[in-house]
Computed example of a mutant assay.
Amino acid sequence: MDQTTSDQNLHKFLRFKTNGRDATHARLLALDFANHYTQNKWSLKRWKGHPKFTITWERAAGGKAADGTPLMEKVTSKPFNQSVIERAIKTEGSGFIGALNLPELRPNWLDASIPIFMGFHHVDPDGGTVKMQVDPSLGPKFPLRPMLDREGVMEVSFQKSLLLNIAEQRKQAVDVSRLGTTNPWGFLTTLRTLTSEAVTMIDNTLHQLYFKAQYDPLPMWKFDEVALGPRHGSRIMEKLKWVYAITGVHLDARDQTAAFGFIKAVRNHFAHMDPPCMCITMEEAADWLNKIRVVGELNWKIRQAIGVPPSLALVELLMQPEVEFVPIYPMNRRIPQPPTVGYKAVCEEALARASSTKGKSSAPETDGLLAIAPTRGV
């Protein structure tokens, strides 16, 4: 038996609650998409029982016309309303657009993911090179134009790659939630990557909004550089205020912002290793992975405030089920987790509490304590 097979036989302490997709997210995502496709702002109550719509749109048919323009074909969607989209999202996830013959709603300035690879470097007799350039879709005044003239890669929006990677890493964290594997750092490494990607995803969204407002604002948007404050050196929690300052729409995301604040603190701990130790129970890990999905909701809330639809990559993340802890001995008695174990034993607040009691007489907790000392090198 190889090591991989041996690891697979170990107990997994985390699992997704169901094999199905999240019903609440499906309903609200369907509402969002139905309104965007029909250019309405209807409530669930208004959509209930409403007759179905169809829309006609164009897509590339392959090949080019005589004038060199791409050949296009007209496509008519299947009849839909909010409930039809909801059922399709539950069964197909982000594939609902194909199931209903609907176009992908993708604002270029936010979701124009175009990973471009160049695998050659050609110099002509005059010393010039073949170049590839891509437009970031942030308006003609935006000063940057990614360009390659030799082997390399470029991208203009990381929305898709970040969201898909977060969804994949979340599944990976559940899969590697085995203790005592041949890769003892695998679980912590996955959590470290996941928290970092989640924070970057929100930071990236806010900076795309900032530059769009600065160089190519939508109608009714405002851009006041002084009021917004510096892009560098300011806290990301302060940058969330950019949404209202630019759009005039309040970011209705109290729970999502709280979850993001927690994940950001964990990311900072992982990134700087300050304090230089980490400790997490699997019960906490399940909560963290669920908070990661709530951070995805924050991306969605920002999109709602700025008037753009959810991306298909975001649908993939939001439609993942919640994660739950699975004890290896489910019949054994358990007690609530005390504040002296797990992450609360190593976070910055724990260090501050310990420092404040330095020099005071206090007996350490030793009841049932198993002390493990690191091995020393010779």
Rank of each mutant, 00 (worst) to 15 (best):
Q3W: 04
S6T: 05
N9K: 12
L10P: 02
T24S: 11
R27L: 13
L28H: 13
G49V: 09
H50Y: 08
R59F: 01
G62K: 08
G63Q: 02
K64N: 06
A66M: 08
A66G: 03
P70Q: 08
M72R: 13
T76G: 05
S83V: 06
V84T: 14
I85D: 02
K90H: 03
E92N: 14
S94N: 01
G95W: 05
G98C: 10
A99G: 08
P103I: 03
R106S: 15
P107C: 15
N108K: 12
A112M: 06
H122R: 13
V123Q: 12
D124V: 10
M132V: 14
G139T: 12
G139F: 15
L148E: 02
V156C: 15
F158E: 06
F158C: 02
K160S: 14
S161V: 10
L162A: 08
I166C: 04
A167R: 09
E168G: 02
D175F: 12
G180A: 03
T182M: 05
L194P: 02
S196F: 06
A198T: 06
N204D: 11
H207I: 05
Q208P: 02
K212F: 04
M220K: 15
F223C: 08
V226W: 05
A227D: 06
R231K: 13
R231M: 10
H232D: 08
G233I: 15
S234K: 07
M237P: 00
A245Q: 14
V249G: 02
R254L: 11
F260E: 01
F262S: 02
V266F: 02
P275Q: 04
C277M: 12
C279Y: 00
E283V: 11
D287V: 12
W288F: 04
N290Y: 00
V295H: 10
N299R: 10
W300D: 04
K301S: 10
K301N: 07
L312Y: 11
L314S: 07
E316D: 15
P321Q: 05
P321L: 05
Y329I: 11
N332D: 10
T340S: 14
Y343S: 03
C347D: 15
E348T: 07
A352H: 14
S355N: 09
G359S: 04
S362M: 13
A363F: 10
T366N: 03
L369Y: 11
L370K: 10
A371M: 09
A373S: 12
V378K: 11
